[in-house]
Simulated assay, not measured.
Amino acid sequence: MRDTSQVHRSQSASLPRYAIEFGEWMARVGNERARALGHAKLRPAHNRLIGFIEFEGSRIVDIAQAQAVSKNAIGQLVTDLEELGYLERVPDPADGRAKIVRYTDRGKKLLTDTAAIVEQLDSEVRAVIGERRLAELRSTLAEICHHFGLNPSA
């Protein structure tokens, strides 16, 4: 068994701990700001889904594969966002049996608001670590995600 100091370090000062805390902070603050901009019924699961839908639209099966979850789970989130007016399902022009999930005008407004929120979050992190280190952080995280196949848009 490892000594107590190693266990303590792994619990309090580990990369997973910092990554989780930072990611949760970004998600929580981003969600709070989206709510303040009129997107009151969004949940964190909705926000995560939004990041996987291409601007022109995506098929549910492709979103499910990118997130490594079931089509049913994605379908429920899409239904939620349809009911909130952010998404719609339309026939896939390449396959008449399939549907494309795409943004409504309200959904496009959410994307615009999200871009502004991301800029605010970047600015807040920049104020802590500076422009150079922010660029390094973004580059390092992108490299890690790419290496482990975690970034479907790369």
Rank of each mutant, 00 (worst) to 15 (best):
A135E: 09
Y86H: 04
L121N: 03
L111G: 05
D105F: 12
V118A: 00
R102M: 02
E83K: 14
D80I: 06
V118S: 04
L134V: 00
D95L: 11
L137S: 02
I117K: 06
L134T: 00
E82W: 12
S70F: 02
S70L: 10
R133L: 06
A94M: 15
D105N: 11
V101R: 06
P93F: 13
I117A: 04
L77I: 10
S70E: 08
Y86P: 01
A94E: 15
L134S: 03
I117E: 01
V101T: 07
P152T: 03
R97V: 12
P93R: 14
D92R: 08
I117P: 01
L84D: 09
R132W: 09
L81M: 14
V101D: 04
G149K: 03
Y86C: 00
G107W: 09
T140S: 12
P152W: 07
A135G: 07
E83D: 14
A127E: 09
A94W: 15
Q120I: 04
R97T: 14
V101W: 02
L137H: 06
E82I: 11
L87K: 01
L84E: 13
R133Q: 09
E143F: 08
T140Q: 10
D105T: 12
R126V: 06
D92W: 10
P152R: 02
K109R: 11
I129L: 00
R102K: 10
P91T: 05
D122A: 07
I144F: 15
L84V: 02
L137A: 00
D122F: 10
K109F: 11
L111M: 08
T104A: 00
T79V: 13
Q120G: 04
T104F: 06
R106F: 08
I129D: 04
N72T: 15
S139D: 14
A115R: 13
L111C: 01
D113Y: 05
R102G: 05
R138L: 09
S153T: 11
E131L: 07
V101G: 04
R106M: 07
R89T: 05
K71N: 15
E88F: 08
T140M: 07
L87T: 02
V69L: 08
R133I: 05
R102N: 01
R97G: 13
C145P: 09
E119F: 06
E88A: 13
A127H: 02
A98W: 01
Q76K: 15
I129H: 03
H147Y: 11
